[in-house]
Every structure is written in C-alpha cells, then in structure tokens.
Design a protein around this nucleic acid. Structure first.
Lengths: 208, 208, 208, 208
DNA sequence: ACGGGCGGGACTGCCCGTTGGT
DNA sequence: ACCAACGGGCAGTCCCGCCCGT
C-alpha cells in the first residue's frame, strides 16, 4: 500500500540526487578549504560557493566536519563484508573490503582523496573525528563478523585484532599522504597489513 | 630524569595548586554531567558549581571536552617510557607504561576513572576526542621509541605495531566499563595485550 | 444560530474529519510532552508519532503552542453567549457560558484537560499564550456584548468587569491544577466568581 | 574579602552602565520597528543600528520580545509594595504602586511609553507576552501581600481581586493608546480602578 | 591570575513558501 | 485537492576566542 513496494527507482532516484548535491557541496568546500585552511573557512562561505543557504548545508551535512569526512562508499562496506566466505582469514577479509571501498575512492578521484586525507592528517579536529568514525563504524562491523563466525572466535579477541587491522589503514593513509600521494595507496596498504602479521614476531618475543 | 625536578619548589608549588584546582573543577563537572548528561551541561553551570567565572574555566581547560579527558598522569608517561631498557620487547614496554599510568589512576580513584571512561564510551564527541588524543600522544611516543631503537626496527612497522597496542587499551577500557567496573582493569588489560600477541594464529593463516 | 448548520453535511463532514485528526495529533503531542517536557519535544517527534509529515502538522496547528492550546469547543462559545437573555446579570451570563464550554471539556475528558492546564501553568511560553488567547477571544466577546446591551452599560466599564471575570477562570484553573485535579473544577469556578462579587468589601473600603 | 563589601558604588556603576546600554538599544529598536513593523525588523538590523553584534544584543535582552517589554522600573515595584501600610485597602495600595512605576515612565518619556504600548496592543506576540509577564510578576506580588496581610484575607480571594486589579491596568493602557496618547494616562487609570470598584453593582445583582 | 565585556561561528528549532507527485 | 519533500529565513544557544581593567 505504501510506496516501498515498487522496487528501487523512486527512492534511489531521490537518494542519487542527494548524493550528487552532496558531492557538489563537498567539491566547493574542499576547494575553499585548500585555499584558506579549514578553520578559516566558514559554513556561510561554503554555502555561498555552492549557491545554497547555510540552513540547507546542514540538511546535507550534519556538521562542518562531515563535509570533509563524507564519501559515497560508506554504506556499501558492510554488504561487502557480509559477502565474504565466513572461513576466510580475518586479515584477508579485511584486506578485500578495504581494497573495494577505499580503492574505489582512490581510483575514481585520487586528487579528492588526497585532499581529504591531507586534512585528516593536519587538522586535529578532523583527525579526532576520523578516529571516532572508525570506531563507530567498527562496532557495526564487529556485529556482522560475530554473527558470521561467532562460535569460532572469542569476542574480545575479535575486537583486539579488528582494531589492530583498522589501525593499519590509518597508518597506510598517513604514509601515503606524507609522500604527497606519489606512492600507490593499495600497495602501501598491503605492506602495513603484512607488517602487522609479521610484527607478531616482535610481540611474541615479548610473550616468551 | 627530565627538567621538572631542578628549578626548585616554586614551579612545582604553582603547578600543584593548579592541579588541585583542576581536580576540583573536574569533580564538579563530572558530578553535573552524571546528573544531566554531557551536552546538557554548560560551561556556565560547571563554573558556577566550581565558584569560578566561565572565563577562568578556560584557563584551566582549553575546551569543554578536556574537563573530562584530563588527568594528572599525562605528562609522566613519556618519562616512564624513556626509562625502560631499549632492548625490551615492545609489548612489554607498553604494558609496563600503561600499568604505571592508567593503573595509577585506577588504584587512586576507580570511581572517577569509571565515570570518565563511561563518558568516553557513551558520548560520541568524547569518543572521537579520546581516539584523537591517543594518536596525538602516540606521535610523541613514536619519536621516543625511534630514537631509542631506531636502527633495530622499521619505522612503518613501529607505527603499525604501536597502533595495534594502543587499540588494546581502548578495548580493555571498553570491556571494563561495559561490566560496570566490576572486573579488574589491569587484568583485562593484560588479557587484551595477550590476545593481540596470540592473535597471530588467525592472522598468520592469512599470511600463509 | 450561526452559519454552520445550513450548507449541508459536506462541510461538516470534512470539518469533523479535521477535528478527529487534530484530536489524534494532540493526543500524541501531549503524551510526548508529558514524557519529555514541552521544549524538549520537537515538531518532528510529534509528526513522527502521529505518522504525518512535519509540514502537515502545520496544516492542522499554526504553531507548536496551538497543539496544546486547541480544543474543539472554541467556536461555540460565542454562539452560546449570543443565546443568553440580554438583561441577565453579567456575571451570570459569564458563568453559564464557561460552564458550557470549559465544563464540557471537563466532563468529556478530565485527564486531557488536566494535562493541558498543567502545561499552561508550568511552561512560561504557554502561560503567555493562554493569557494572550483570552484577551483576543475577549475582544470578540466584548463586541457581542456591546451589540446586545450597548446602551445599558458603559464601554470602559464593560471591559473592566469583563477582564475581571476572565481572571476568575485563570485563578480557578490554577487552583484546580495545583490540587492535581482532585477538586471539582466547576465548584472552584463558582467559588472564584463569587469571591469577585463579594470582593467588593475590601474594594469598597478603598472607595470610601 | 570579596568585592561586595564596598557598599554600593562599583556594582551600581556597572548596573547603571548596563541600563544605559539597554536604553540605547531599545531606542534604536523602537525606531526601526516603528518604521518597518515588528516582525519585519530583525535582530541583525537592530544590532547594526545599535553598533553592537547580534551576540551582544542577546546579552542585554534574552529575546526579541524583551527589547520592547523591558523598562527600567521593573525591580522597584515590589519594594514600593512592601512599603505601604498593611491595613490599607487593596485597591489603594495597588493604585499607589502603579502610579509610582507606570506614572514614572509616563512622566519621564511619554512618547516612548506610547510607542511600546501601541506595540503591545498591536502585535499578538507582544500582547501575549505582556499578559504573561503580568501574571508572572503577579505571583511575586501575591507572595508579598500574603506575608503582609496573610491572616486577614483568604488566599483565593486575594488572587481573584488582584487579577481583577491587574486587568484595570491593561484596560487603561489600551484605552490611552486607542486615543493616541491624548488623554492623561493616570486619570484613565483612576477611572478604570473606580469602575471596577463600582462595577460590583452590576455583579451584585448577579449574585442576588 | 582573575573577572568581565564583546564578538564570532557552529548548530538547532520553528515556521513558511514552493514544487512535484498522487 | 492533498500531501510529502525541499529549500530558506530568523531566533536563539553554546563554545570559545580576544582585550581590558584589577
């Protein structure tokens, strides 16, 4: 009876339009921020540049931080995760999901990604927010993993390993950005994941 | 070891007075926040409760978040780190430093620590800020470690392992707080660090 | 007596449907407000609870305040007034009209009335609005009275006495609500009106 | 030890400066509102005209309504009330207090008072607010009266009579403003009070 | 070192006009 | 014709900065 039963389009169309608007606003915002710095750029300036009212800005992004943080891949990550075989090693599942999402952003528009990551590394406020978003997203991620391999792995252990894996992404992004985007992001990411796996060596000596 | 112990008492005395004031303000703030929630509590209310002016509040804490984040152990962590033998396994160095600082807070006033940690887990703003502070503090920490065992370990690897270790603290605090502070925090911390070391199993299968 | 009864059912039916919707929305609103407080309850929450869009809320109630103020008896008061004999003492006319309207609400759903009156006494914004509505409604009332007994009473005097009578309703509602709705509202109302009439004593000594 | 013990001056000086600023802002506001209408005048315009920031406007007046409502006599009314002999007839006490406060405003700057009263009569929002302020102030007033003649008069009766007296002020202001400020406000006020006292006649016939 | 005055920017909530879909 | 979503405008609050006098 309600609108939901016609599969897809009308909702998607709306949602797609919103995504386009968001991309447009973000583009203007990143441009201004690159010129003037993050704190020096006001919402009013961004709204002017995007030809919308400040009030409308907040309809698309709940906070100023979000205009930098947001990207269009966020919602698909969990679906990808759910599609991996449940007996796959954790590091491998993680590697594949990150390659799909982060890699997607990377291939589609490396400049934009670099601009955003540079801000994440530079502006303390965004640095914090990024870490926060990771942990929030992480909680949902944990829930998916627990339901998939619940019996096979201890809940606390899952969290420890998961957080360690998440940290590899932060390190990889940091390193990539430190080299001004010259290196290959995905290669660096592979390296950091491998380092975590191998780094065990040092830790095991600690356990001995 | 560092500079604090020489210039005599005058600095220390001032500093100690400031610390006492900070503790007082924090106590009032935590009390109000527990009653009303973090966002509902304004600086003005805290200042009133602490019998200071709002302006003075900001002389003691740069932001509202800091009144929850701050503790009196922050500055000593790096000194402790510096005092450990340079050939000690990383996990062990880390474990000892955390036991000294976090453990100190825990033993001195577990109630206060629990209140703060509960907020860190609950309020998104503080959750982010905490993650941010960790990474900031982490950078200094890395610098100390690099100068000590610089040649013996790859810089990237150090960051990966270090971040993984940091994550164990977050997980341990989260778990402790989830149990309403009933369990022993240091025991949980030991467990999460061990889990990271043992986590090898799952990760290594990934590497195979 | 007035225009409503002629144009047949279509208007009345529509109007009745609107009234039902209004009652439904008001019920949801009062429920939420009782739980969370007036200011903490947003239009969006009310709209969600009533399963309408925020925009539609404003089609039924011009402002947020009105969802508390409104009741289904408002329009009939003037008709009743018009129906009273023109030579009846003012206090008696007033008493009868109020008994019919307010008394109707009271008998039909005392709980709802109590909830609304409690808000009127508590929330400053609504307190003001209520007083404002009374004076607005009062102006129309005055016009009716003037046309009926215009020659027999001085215009200024009519306003003074009328306002004094209106005040008795406010006092009665306040007293009734202060007793948590335990007493009989109409009895209290009779008492306050009588007190005004008898209040002469003190005032006349002033005039002497 | 603190500053309060030097009697008077420093506090009063600050307070007097605040009052002067308030008067200046109010003057600008009334000027703009007279030209453009109340709703058409924004805080930003008022702030610009007064050469302050919007933020500062709200330091002096909590709401836009208050810039019209406020006057410098508010706090003295209760003291005056307390100074009257406790056995004086209620209407007389009331008459004297109102003559002192409202009369003070009237003599000092009748133009300003007329502008404000005209708005009170015209803008529904302000009309409501005025009625609300009266009832709020009334509650304190009641408390003073009860403590003075507590035993001699019934609490409910006091409220009924008090509210009736308050209404005479509203009616008087309304009438004065309707004549464009031509008549003498205090004379009109005397008349309305007298009418209330005499109006009893009509009411008593109702009671008979 | 403290308090107070002032400014500014982020953000929210109410309310309204318009448009497009049913 | 009704209604939902969209965009906009204004009031108002909070955090936090700066400057000044004490």
């Amino acid at each position: 009876m309600t609108a939901d039963n016609q599969p897809g389009r009308s909702v998607n169309l709306r949602e797609r339009k919103r995504t386009k608007t968001r991309l447009m606003i973000q583009a203007e915002a990143l441009r201004l921020i690159e010129q003037q710095g993050y704190e020096q750029t006001t919402i009013e300036q961004i709204a002017d540049a995007a030809a919308i009212s400040p009030r409308t800005f907040f309809r698309y992004f709940p906070t100023k931080e979000d205009v930098v943080m947001w990207d269009e891949y966020d919602p698909v990550a969990l679906e990808l995760l759910d599609a991996r075989p449940p007996d796959e090693p954790l590091a491998e599942t993680f590697r594949m999901v990150v390659r799909a999402t982060l890699g997607g952003l990377y291939r589609r528009d490396p400049e934009r990604l670099l601009a955003r990551v540079r801000l994440l590394a530079t502006v303390p406020e965004l640095r914090s927010r990024f870490a926060g978003l990771q942990t929030e997203g992480f909680d949902e991620l944990i829930r998916v993993l627990e339901s998939k391999r619940g019996s096979k792995i201890d809940a606390l252990s899952l969290r420890v390993i998961g957080n360690a894996l998440l940290a590899t992404v932060r390190v990889a992004l940091d390193r990539w950005q430190a080299g001004d985007g010259k290196g290959d992001l995905l290669a660096i990411l592979d390296e950091t994941i491998d380092l975590l796996v191998d780094g065990v060596g040092d830790l095991q000596r600690a356990a001995a």
